[in-house]
């Protein structure tokens, strides 16, 4: 327990140190404060931009888009993972596709998606979904592969039906890996959608950051940037903590 506390303390010190160093670099003028706002300035700018209400619509739009893409990606990914697990021949056939899927910079398809579906929310959802769903499917496969045989045998001994075996035995056993998939899916959907908004779009958080950059509005730019980074980190940390707890419980520690 004391070791865990020491690690946590070290982590807090590391982050606080990095923020303080950045603050000092900016305040002392080694880095031009017009180029890089000090962290305290970024925080103030973030509060001001959010409180002004000028970006509320964009925030809602980005979060809705991410939620839709993420929800679809998780549902589809789990379904595909379960299907491939049940059909080993199909799984082996798709192996080259799965192995090179994330080697392709998926983002290059985004302009084509815009041409296909128009400059609206659909290409963003497709991009977010495509970035996220394969990670979910692969994590589902890992989870199902790791489900101990003995648990399945125990389920048969207890004469559980397929549905009850899936819900009461397989799901809990595979849950740490499923959560890893959920965590990756959320990160990838968020990254893809913010990038899409940034490069080619007419609204959303990514668009507002690019717009602020183009119009030399550094305060808005840094404020929104910090907001996006904080949201992404908070969501990732929450899912990570949940995943760790489930993993510890499963390994019986």
């Amino acid at each position: 327990m004391s070791r865990r506390r020491a690690v946590l303390g070290g982590r807090i010190a590391l982050i606080a140190g990095a923020v303080a160093a950045l603050e000092m670099l900016c305040r002392s003028g080694i880095v031009d404060p017009l180029t890089l706002l000090p962290p305290s300035g970024m925080a103030a700018a973030m509060v001001a931009v959010i409180a002004s209400g000028s970006v509320t619509g964009d925030i809602l739009r980005t979060f809705t888009t991410v939620a839709v893409a993420f929800g679809l990606a998780v549902a589809f990914g789990i379904a595909v993972g379960a299907l491939l697990h049940a059909a080993p021949r199909l799984r082996r056939a798709l192996d080259p596709l799965l192995a090179s899927y994330y080697a392709v910079p998926l983002f290059v398809f985004y302009p084509l998606l815009v041409a296909l579906f128009g400059l609206n929310v659909v290409p963003l959802i497709v991009l977010g979904f495509a970035s996220a769903t394969v990670a979910m499917a692969m994590s589902t496969l890992t989870g199902l592969d790791r489900t101990p045989r003995v648990l399945l045998k125990a389920a048969r001994v207890h004469r559980l039906g397929r549905l009850r075996t899936a819900l009461l035995v397989v799901l809990p056993a595979a849950s740490p890996d499923l959560l890893t998939g959920v965590k990756l899916a959320l990160a990838y959907a968020f990254i893809g959608i913010i990038a899409g908004e940034f490069i080619l779009s007419g609204s959303g958080l990514g668009y507002q950051i690019a717009y602020a950059y183009d119009s030399f509005d550094n305060r808005t730019m840094y404020g929104l940037m910090l907001f996006v980074l904080l949201i992404a980190t908070a969501a990732n940390a929450a899912l990570h903590a949940w995943e760790q707890r489930v993993r510890r419980r499963r390994s019986g520690r």
Partner: peptide, 21 residues
């Protein structure tokens, strides 16, 4: 132990937002 979760969190951040910087 200290840095691993920090790095993992950085991996999950949309780095495009840092491009203007």
């Amino acid at each position: 132990d200290v840095t691993e979760p920090v790095l993992a969190a950085l991996y999950a951040v949309p780095k495009i937002t840092l491009y203007p910087v």
